[in-house]
């Protein structure tokens, strides 16, 4: 079990990770979500003891990463796609890793086969595409057959085929009962693979909940109605005990409405409908809303409250006195 206790990392005067505490649930895929620059990679590097926390700590099964013997057998990680010497072959890269953690040499061929790199095993990494580099990184993560796997933005820069491959791989790993901790800045990607969700923004924890819970909370479904007879429609809805909210372009939306019931109701009251469509708020929108205030380049570090746009002509006085507006 990986646990983060009040983990904080400061680079100069910039707080990259701010008092982060959560535990990574075992045996499921946990999505680690946040906008670019939210501190995901820094957090992952601190889990592996590559970066030292300014304060707080990470424990793995109650121990510090540097106290684990042959740590690749516990946690396999893919942090950067091409952290491979360009002049070394894929086979030799995996071989030195295997030797360092006393993994049998035969396992190198196994993982090369698993990620589909057997054909280029004796080729130097210099000529590898991004996708091949990513596969080699995943092979090194899987090398010592660890219970826990950690991937930092594994689908970044991959083609659709590669993305699908990684998605299926993560599902397969979780189905084998392994713990998968994967970071992403795309909610849509996580919705397809993750069972649990940890969301951070500006280094702070924003959410830590099961994916199903996140979907339930954030996916508002509604039915949109459009009619030339607005009065009659609202009257009919009111009579049926339903409330409608004004939607865009003169439409009306019934939250959690059933299109069948609403269509029948309109017919019974002789109301002509020009639109009857179920609506689903996207998880991406919910995620964007959650993290909006914490996006790196959004505002200055002071997080000043958002100013309402100035009224038309409000800058007139300034312009009159010759100042640049």
């Amino acid at each position: 079990m990986i646990e983060l206790h009040h983990l904080t990392k400061r680079y100069g005067d910039k707080l990259a990770v701010d008092d982060l505490s959560f535990r990574i649930p075992e045996g499921v895929v946990t999505g680690f979500l946040g906008p670019n620059g939210a501190g995901k990679s820094t957090t992952m590097r601190m889990i592996l003891d590559l970066d030292r926390p300014t304060s707080g700590e990470v424990t793995i099964g109650g121990r510090h990463y540097s106290g684990i013997q042959d740590p690749l057998r516990r946690i396999g990680a893919l942090l950067e796609a091409k952290a491979v010497h360009p002049g070394r072959t894929a086979y030799d890269h995996l071989l030195w890793l295997a030797q360092s953690n006393r993994v049998p040499r035969a396992r190198v061929d196994e993982v090369l086969d698993l990620v589909g790199l057997t054909a280029v095993a004796r080729k130097r990494a210099r000529g590898f595409s991004l996708g091949m580099g990513q596969r080699l990184g995943i092979a090194s993560a899987l090398l010592a057959d660890p219970q826990t796997l950690m991937f930092d933005e594994p689908v970044n820069g991959l083609d659709p085929e590669g993305i699908l491959w990684i998605r299926n791989l993560m599902k397969r790993l979780a189905a084998e009962g392994r713990t998968v901790f994967v970071s992403s800045h795309l909610m849509s990607e996580m919705a397809l693979t993750a069972d649990h969700l940890v969301v951070i923004g500006r280094g702070r924890l924003l959410a830590d909940l099961p994916m199903a819970e996140f979907i339930k909370r954030n996916s508002r479904s509604s039915v949109r109605l459009r009619t030339p007879h607005q009065e009659q429609l609202l009257h009919a809805l009111h009579g049926a005990g339903l409330t409608a909210e004004a939607g865009p372009d003169g439409s009306w939306e019934v939250v959690d409405g059933d299109p069948v019931v609403l269509g029948d109701l309109a017919a019974a009251h002789g109301v002509t409908l020009h639109e009857l469509s179920p609506q689903q708020a996207s998880l991406e929108e919910a995620f964007m809303q959650m993290t909006a205030s914490s996006v790196e380049y959004h505002m200055g570090a002071g997080a000043a409250p958002e100013q309402p746009p100035p009224a038309w002509g409000a800058d007139w006085d300034g312009r009159k006195s010759g100042k640049e507006s």
């Binding site: 540097s66 950067e80 952290a83 010497h85 360092s100």
Partner: peptide
């Protein structure tokens, strides 16, 4: 060459001591 390729992080993850 560990530093030029970023491999030092892979090395230290494998041997954190």
């Amino acid at each position: 060459n560990e530093y030029s390729s970023g491999m030092i992080r892979v090395s230290l993850a494998a041997v954190p001591q």
